[in-house]
Design a binder for these strands. Structure first.
Lengths: 336, 336
DNA sequence: ATTTGCGATTTAAACGATTAAGCCTATATT
DNA sequence: AATATAGGCTTAATCGTTTAAATCGCAAAT
């Protein structure tokens, strides 16, 4: 029950494998293949149910038509949605995607990169973890095409597609200020990565520009691995130290979930006791008793851009770097 | 800047590629390779930063160490979570996973299968769509290892890992009955697939066993592609026709989300106006004002089993079929 | 009549590995 | 001394493709 190869077709038709290859790759013109024999070959291929062996093809051509997608966690809705857009876009360019979750750990990320390199992926789309700078540099040195997504390293010039974290945060917090909040806390997660730093900076600057006291003591950072536990403790402490906090800005979807859960459990009413703005969307917001304002990231656009840039780099390694900042919109929800 | 191959190592050390291959694959014993030269080879490989070319390896061995995962939609939290467990489990068996979303469409599913076959995946894990029976049969005829997940076809004997849909539904609805609900409606989605049929059957039987009138008129089916629109219309109509409905049983996570949104929008209070039980979990439930009872599917176990079975089939194509029903538990939430 | 050119096809090397089989040499066995 | 055995290594075929180069008629041009 061997699969049928180009050789089988060649034998069945009585020609060389070269001819079959030319025809099946639509290179008849360039290779000057006869019209009638081309038809015969095509027919026979269909008849035998030929399916090209992409592995053999890859070995010969040096292109696997595969891209590696490395995210923090595919089960996180943000990344799952990104993955979906990337899947769809990749298909348009005839790429297939292999994914892996790094859990924000540099060693896992390195491990994934290695595995994917061994599989000869043509390029990567990576949401880089903290401490993965060297991995990224190494990809560059090896001239492996890649596009960073969601985060990037300012000190390394690479392709990337990220949201305008600073502005988005700034506007989000400004919105809270404008609606009369005077003591706004932020829950971020502990990370040296710019995306989080920028969100914090946007928050701080918005406070300053709104004539509020510095938010330094009001930004709390949570460890990625213990979000659900820590967020409660941290917010509890915050509220104890600053009973006059009247708003929270959550820096990611997971933080929002944890934070809102805490507020529910402790019977803080939104927006009467505290207002809330979340960075990133969640379908859970729809079920919340209060309308929630959030920063909406254009996932589809991010996926599209990432693939477009990556495809460009793959087909032309000398292509210019592209650094795309997409605009996230603040979706203001006040009434039902 | 070519990548280094086994040939480069062989040349650098001054031996044949065969020797290098034996050493790097830890076949020194069987191949009686000398101790010292083995060390030299290993060192040189490290020094040159050798990374095996899995593509070449695959071509020769006929094993790609890759599995194809086909789900309805990777952005759906249920499948995203499944994907994560499968990723982790697959890694333990040294497999890498390529995924694709079928959108419950048989043609897309077929297309994905073809693409993955061309890529020589060693096996599949598939959440089959309605109407994909022939595709599944065809895989069988080609002796391609696969495991169905979440759904299966009773008339085709295949490996599968599914939850005990009937029982889970039955218990869920029984629970509603026991807590005093007398008119329970179910929102399902339109599908000939057994998983949904079984959920409906469990619902109907639970009603009958609880001495309620037949639920026939109270099961409504929604098209997969228009869940969010239709669910509102359908539930609105239901409530109009049967103002005495006092509970809803939602057949999937997407249906639950849509349904709860509808109830919120129309100011039905839970559980005072109507009670609700959802099939499948959602992190959104945590933010809902009322505690929600739901059917919890053991995703980790499902992923583990699927990979275990698949790996078994790959290494021994004559392995016996395995049909696993995992137990979903009803998580009853009454108080905060 | 010879060359040129062109269309149609084949040849064969290559991609990077794996692996059965063969070839030495040196030591052990009889 | 002759033979067997084992250890250490190489040879070469192979996996299924792609593709540059070679080949081969045959008609047109000189």
């Amino acid at each position: 029950m061997k699969r049928v190869s180009i050789k089988d077709i060649a034998q069945a038709v009585g020609v060389s494998t070269a001819l079959v290859s030319y025809v099946l790759n639509n290179k008849e013109k360039e290779a000057r293949v006869g019209q009638k024999i081309a038809e015969v070959i095509r027919l026979k291929a269909k008849e035998l149910g030929y399916q090209p062996n992409q592995i053999a093809k890859s070995l010969k051509t040096g292109r696997s038509q595969t891209i590696g997608l490395i995210v923090a966690d595919i089960s996180n809705p943000f990344f799952a949605n990104i993955a979906r857009t990337i899947e769809d876009e990749a298909k348009k360019y005839n790429y297939t995607v292999i994914f892996g979750s790094s859990d924000e750990a540099a060693d896992k990320s390195q491990n994934l990169i290695n595995i994917l390199l061994e599989r000869q992926v043509d390029g990567f789309i990576i949401a880089p973890t903290e401490g993965s700078e060297e991995q990224i540099r190494s990809l560059q040195e090896q001239h492996i095409p890649f596009v960073l997504i969601d985060r990037y390293f300012p000190e390394i010039s690479t392709n990337f597609v990220v949201t305008n974290n600073y502005q988005a945060s700034y506007h989000a917090v400004k919105h809270l200020a404008r609606s009369g909040r005077r003591k706004i806390a932020m829950i971020a997660y502990k990370s040296g990565l710019v995306h989080m730093k920028e969100r914090e900076k946007g928050y701080l600057d918005a406070l300053a520009d709104s004539g509020m006291e510095s938010g330094q003591g009001l930004v709390k950072e949570i460890s990625y691995n213990f979000i659900q536990q820590e967020v409660g403790e941290v917010m509890g402490q915050l509220m104890k130290d600053h009973p006059d906090i009247d708003a929270f800005f959550f820096g990611s979807n997971a933080l929002s979930m944890g934070g809102l859960r805490f507020l529910n459990r402790n019977n803080y009413r939104i927006p009467d006791d505290v207002s809330v703005v979340c960075f990133d969307e969640s379908e859970a917001f729809d079920l919340f008793y209060a309308p929630l304002t959030f920063v909406n990231q254009p996932l589809l656009e991010m996926g599209k851009e990432a693939i477009r840039i990556l495809a460009g780099q793959i087909s032309d390694r000398a292509a210019a770097l592209e650094q795309v900042f997409v605009d996230s919109a603040l979706i203001v929800r006040t009434d039902k």
